[in-house]
Design a protein around this nucleic acid. Structure first.
Lengths: 147, 147
DNA sequence: CACAATTTCCCACAATTTCCCACAATTTTT
DNA sequence: AAAAATTGTGGGAAATTGTGGGAAATTGTG
């Protein structure tokens, strides 16, 4: 099963709804039950996991030690913003204001397929992010993918 | 199973469709399910992988650590332009405008078989590329061989 | 319990994509 | 060489997709 890929620029309507590109919807396994979990991501974007992928992460989380101060702190931050949403008949999901505000999204959003999950960005912020990255793509590729 | 080889000059129709030469189509294994993945390639052409070949690459990607800043940066850049397409009844694939623009392709395209994947070029740009390489070669020769 | 605010569900519409058919040119078969 | 099949090209019809907004259901609050 191939992962999420590609990008799209979609509008955010007055009710905070964003369409999930059909190309990405078809990548979801039936076990996800048309359900996604949106949460705060890194680099100030929104991460959106299909339910089955999210469950795997939760399993990792539940393996952590609840008596460790550090682990508790991580779990709180991680679970706090997670929001389970179902895809409506038109392929959209509603996102809560706090999440949109965190990502600085207003009327337009950039949706990126990122293999196991989706990312939703404010288009301008994503441009800034790309620019701020020190290494260019080819250098990065060589570094990450090794020889 | 032999790799992709040969070249062909094909037209791009108003809907962004390009035919895959039948000679190259027959090189695809059944596991590709008549599906290809097109993405940005190096030197400003489009790379097109058969699905099974692409999956091998994705497997490498999924082995990366999503909690590493650097790895995330790479995955984003890599998956961003990828587009999964299926070959239609007439042996064509639809390519998105952004990809065609990246490669500078308008009405005509040059398709090159390159073993594990195909390359799609703007014919003029490919000529320029060859010529530039030639220049580099002469410079290199003068540098290395000149007393 | 009532009422306001939010969320969910449903319908409408334009734009795009997908599917299907026609046709000329080429290749393969007879 | 003729007939048949395949290939590349184009375009129309049908289905899907993305967008918006209204009505019904749900929720929280006084």
């Amino acid at each position: 099963m191939p992962g999420f890929k590609g990008q799209a620029t979609y509008s955010v309507d007055g009710k905070g709804r964003i369409a999930i590109p059909s190309r990405m919807r078809t990548c979801m396994s039936p076990e996800a039950h048309n359900t996604l979990v949106a949460t705060r991501g890194f680099e100030r974007c929104i991460f959106v996991y299909p339910l089955d992928g999210w469950m795997e992460i939760e399993e990792q989380i539940s393996a952590l030690n609840p008596y460790s101060h550090k682990h508790r702190a991580f779990i709180r931050r991680f679970m706090r913003w997670a929001d389970e949403v179902t895809i409506d008949a038109k392929g959209r999901i509603p996102l809560q204001r706090p999440l949109l505000e965190y990502a600085g999204i207003e009327k337009t959003s950039l949706i990126l397929g990122n293999q196991k999950y989706l990312e939703i960005w404010d288009p301008q912020r994503f441009d800034d992010y790309l620019e701020a990255e020190e290494a260019d793509y080819e250098t990065l590729a060589a570094e990450v993918m090794g020889s």
